[in-house]
Design a protein around this nucleic acid. Structure first.
Lengths: 229, 229
DNA sequence: CGATGCAACGTTGTATACAACAGGTGAAAA
DNA sequence: TTTTCACCTGTTGTATACAACGTTGCATCG
């Protein structure tokens, strides 16, 4: 099925650019620029942009252009508050519905003993960290929960991107993920919830330490010079 | 600013039709049908439909058509579980951030003493009920929370629509809303949270009593005969 | 020198034409 | 009778042309 692949591709590409800060927050671009960049017409570009606007990743100002969402630290706090509520619910539900096999697999993946084998790249860890939380949400069997958590992740990814200072926090992450899995295998929902809460709050302190300078540091607009090619 | 009014209007109209069950769940329609119905081209229609698809109100099957989402009772339970988590958080936050004036206004509106004055219509009550919960979410000062709760409401509205059996439940609603406001005015977050939890769970029992027969009863496709006009 | 109006430009909103593909229908062959 | 296959129709995906509107810059007037 090749239908709608163009719009989908553009959507995912733009989304990655925004989440990875390749497009500077607050910067402006136009539909035509993106269309020229991807060598397509404006139609599939518009579809991608409209979806990104619904997700509040960009703002489309009529007759003016598209603007990448600005990172507001206060808003990130908001997302973290919701995330705590969402993920503690996810753990509680997954404690009931997630099969042992899936939990054991996660526990193995995040066993601190396996930490030194791979010498994993930092980027890979960040992706895996996000995948871990999504996996638990999926284990809850609640699709809406997965959808909201995905949206939250899209808005706080900048914290995972920039705010992972030292190696010890990676060690901590392994230990905490492992603990959560163990508690869930014991079907101890309360303890697992508490552990998840601490885990997220610790991440939130990293978010709080992000400065505005860090957030507004990269720049450059990939679409700037497309007309010349 | 008249820009984008067409697409916006079509989006809101379609959304209302779906939420009010004027479009039968599972029924099929095409972009052209909607375009003819509203006397516009397919372009703004597509924008509205794509947004509805993101919100999971419809499914667009390439080269086949658009299908109104089917109401799945299990999924409604899912949304209720998330709603409890979201709204208890909203109450907790609003207890801190919401000014007394706003809370007093809500308390007055839902004072059981005022119940008999208006002889309110059933539809009006249902709208007000939803507005009450949104108001508390807005009082939390957390925009993401408002966004998610709005999405949840869009998916469980069928319960408010069909599952409001008797007059006593309206009385109960007034009393519970009033209690929540009073507790929040006392800044007693724990009690207010507990009250909200009970309030939502009671609504959930109404949802559980909905039968598949009730959900699949209305039919008719408003777009069926548009070509003749 | 400042304010105001106007015109040209850039950008998105909408309409329309065409392309690509899924599904059904019918006839023909086994 | 059953199966297969080609064709036709309907529907969405994409490209492009045009319209409406906001912005900006400059010239003109006070």
């Amino acid at each position: 099925m090749r239908s709608k692949m163009t719009a989908q591709h553009i959507y995912q590409s733009l989304r990655s650019m925004i989440l990875d800060l390749e497009l500077a927050p607050g910067s402006r671009f136009t539909e035509t620029q993106v269309a020229d960049y991807f060598q397509v017409s404006r139609t599939p570009v518009r579809e991608a942009l409209q979806r990104l606007e619904v997700e509040k990743q960009i703002t489309i100002r009529p007759k003016q252009g598209c603007f990448v969402r600005v990172v507001d630290i206060a808003r990130i706090r908001d997302y973290y508050d919701v995330r705590v509520a969402i993920e503690t619910l996810a753990v509680r539900l997954a404690c009931v519905h997630m099969p042992d096999a899936a939990l054991r697999e996660l526990a193995t993946q995040w066993d601190p003993a396996n930490l030194f084998f791979g010498a994993e790249s930092s980027d890979r860890i960040k992706l895996a960290e996000e995948a871990f939380h999504i996996a638990l949400a999926q284990g809850s069997g609640n699709e809406a929960l997965v959808r909201y958590l995905t949206d939250i992740n899209d808005h706080i990814r900048v914290v995972r991107r920039l705010g992972w200072p030292d190696y010890s926090s990676i060690e901590d992450t392994y230990a905490e993920h492992h603990d959560i899995c163990r508690l869930m295998l014991n079907r101890d929902a309360e303890a697992a919830e508490a552990c998840m809460l601490q885990h997220i709050r610790k991440s939130q302190t990293r978010a709080d330490q992000l400065t505005l300078a860090q957030l507004s540091e990269p720049a450059r607009n990939p679409f700037a010079g497309t007309a010349l090619q």
